[in-house]
Write a protein that binds this DNA or RNA. Structure first.
Lengths: 155, 155
DNA sequence: ATTTCCTTCACACTTTTGGGTGATTTCAAT
DNA sequence: ATTGAAATCACCCAAAAGTGTGAAGGAAAT
């Protein structure tokens, strides 16, 4: 098993921290020096661990990659667009008119604009779209458009 | 006289350090708890100051910027997804965050859901989306999704 | 004939979106 | 040190979208 650089850094830090604590414990047992110089002692620890923290941070901070210029040669085999999936439409029980609405919806038209294009009332469009949402099992027109394209119900 | 941001950071650090030491001193006077829990206490101090050190380092050190230039040739078969068009994004002046919102928007999420995912407020999402509509020159989120996909700004 | 589905529409009501304005903070560049 | 872009958020207001219910005509199937 191998450790990443980052894990190694953390390991080193933990070990040194443990060693330091161990050393302090030993000093404590050796000389009872901390009772009357506690504040001084705390200060020393604070400084040591601050430095360690800074060192750790400097080690761990990864340089962020800023600019990425990609030169690309793209060869597109632009074969015919995916066929619309009639079976999926049938399976979901989407009617002709609903499909009309769905198509216009996916191009970004508002309900009112759809109503205008199909010569039906706004309320009718709303009814159709509600039914579409039910059949596609989505909550919003944006989801409907996404899912319909994903299922190749529309282009 | 005014302090630069860097000086302010250092000042804040020193003050918080002083406050901490003061607090510890007070605790020491209040409860003589450190004699029999010294190691525990030392550990706590170590952690606190390590965190402070890390924070200090992260605040003061400017992140190393690594500019990476990648040149590659991409051969795309018909089924592979098109690469996202960085130039188009740059040309339209769409920012990182706006792109985040645009992506989630195109998957069909509501503004509130987007806000939840990005840990920002609903109002912020609205601001971003309004800017997106301006930059993409569209009126609705469905149009934005459609156009963004067409321009290969998103998948 | 009766049933079922599609299509059309209405109305009331709630939720979501979008527009406009302004403020603050942070960061990078000058 | 100043400036500008980006990101954050608030508030108000209007428009659009979505929900629920009900209804009516027509076509196709039973």
């Amino acid at each position: 098993m191998r450790l990443s650089t980052k894990h190694k850094e953390i390991l080193i830090y933990c070990i040194s921290m443990a060693l330091l604590l161990f050393l302090l414990k030993w000093l404590e047992a050796r000389f009872i020096v901390f009772n009357y110089r506690l504040d001084f002692f705390i200060g020393a620890i604070a400084i040591v661990f601050t430095v360690l923290g800074i060192w750790l941070a400097l080690k761990l901070v990864k340089p962020k990659v800023e600019t990425r210029i990609i030169e690309k040669e793209v060869y597109i085999d632009n074969s015919a667009q995916t066929e619309i999936n009639q079976k999926e439409i049938a399976k979901l029980g989407i009617s002709k008119r609903e499909l009309d609405v769905l198509n216009l919806m996916a191009t970004g038209l508002s309900n009112e604009e759809i109503a205008g294009k199909l010569f039906i009332s706004l309320n009718t469009v709303k009814t159709h779209s509600s039914n579409i949402f039910l059949k596609l099992d989505v909550k919003r027109r944006t989801q409907a458009a996404e899912k319909a394209k994903r299922l190749n119900i529309i282009h």
